[in-house]
């Protein structure tokens, strides 16, 4: 059964002109950032932006990820959540407020996450997808609120939650509010657990800091893309501060699998099949917890 992103290749092609971060010698060819080979652009996009020469998984924008779901099934929620500058943060780069406006103009997104519901093989799931091009998909208030609403929506609808995670960590410009989003999102996931629905986390390149160290690392199924850089502390920080030499392959998806931190490393072309299988297995998931919750809600007088 071929169930790649195939159905939605067209939306991939439609968006390829917007892809950024990959050097394009001309309109037809793209240089792979890993193997430096020139790849015919159409071939690259037909291959879901995985280099046909070296298998390097190039980064996808949040909109490009939507091609993984049943065509036309995505409904966006909470698209009207916009960031503000809660601390009045200023650094030599200017104010956070200015940086937000500039980034919003460049990316045409209000912040780093898009969320909503979509279907895979006719099964509905809630989702939230990070976009690394928006300030390194750093986690601030909007990121946290969207993730929380996605989790609460999944709980209310009794459907699974898929998060596609890529981030540099907490957003410095929102200070300790950003840090607290780690707890806020994790807290919301307890509501999903109560109704017996799974959180499936996909880790894509790169995923670091407060994001890796919170909700994705306690997901029910943790999947990573091949070669994705995943860790807590950045490699440069470790090398500078602790002065340790880091081996090749350190903090990759394969490293995480080897050390028992994730369930599987899945090539992009197989993701839809794997997710579809997981959703089938959770089809009848109600929950042992639900009865318990219901009883405790009654006894606490909430109903």
């Amino acid at each position: 059964m071929k169930e790649f992103f195939r159905r939605s290749k067209k939306s991939f092609s439609a968006e390829q002109s917007q892809s950024r971060g990959t050097s394009v010698p001309d309109d037809m060819w793209v240089k792979c950032p890993a193997c430096r080979e020139l790849v015919y652009k159409k071939e690259l996009h037909d291959n879901l932006k995985v280099c046909p020469k070296c298998d390097h998984h190039m980064r996808l924008s949040s909109r490009e990820w939507l091609a993984m779901f049943d065509a036309g099934s995505f409904v966006e929620y909470d698209g009207d959540l916009w960031p503000i500058d809660p601390l009045g943060f200023t650094s030599p780069d200017g104010t956070y407020a200015e940086k937000l406006v500039k980034t919003q103009e460049r990316t045409e997104m209000p912040d780093a996450v898009i969320s909503g519901v979509a279907r895979i093989e006719e099964r509905t799931l809630a989702l939230a997808i990070c976009d690394f091009s928006f300030m390194g998909a750093s986690m601030g208030s909007v990121y946290g609120e969207k993730m929380v609403r996605a989790a609460e929506r999944a709980a209310a609808m009794g459907i699974p939650l898929l998060t596609i995670n890529s981030s540099g960590g907490a957003r410095q410009q929102e200070g300790v509010i950003a840090l607290m989003q780690m707890a806020k999102i994790t807290m919301a996931l307890t509501r999903l657990a109560e109704v017996g629905q799974p959180h499936i986390a996909l880790l894509v390149d790169p995923c670091y800091g407060g994001v890796t160290a919170s909700y994705p690392s306690v997901a029910d199924i943790i999947i990573a893309e091949p070669g994705a850089n995943i860790g807590f502390a950045g490699k440069r920080l470790i090398e500078q501060i602790v002065r340790q030499k880091l081996p090749a392959g350190f903090q990759t998806a394969e490293f995480m699998l080897e050390h028992g931190m994730i369930d599987m490393v899945t090539p992009r072309g197989d993701l839809r099949t794997v997710l579809s299988r997981a959703l089938r297995l959770y089809k009848h998931s109600s929950s042992a917890f639900r009865v318990h919750t219901f009883v405790s809600d009654i006894s606490s007088g909430r109903y």
Binding site: M187, A193, A213, S214, V218, F232, V242, M261
Partner: peptide, 23 residues
């Protein structure tokens, strides 16, 4: 932040602790 902490799952350890406190 060191090599051993990453190998033994610093992210997982922190995330599990947060989740445990939440519930």
């Amino acid at each position: 932040p060191d090599k051993e902490a990453e190998e033994r799952g610093q992210s997982n350890a922190i995330a599990e602790s947060i989740l445990t406190m939440c519930e």
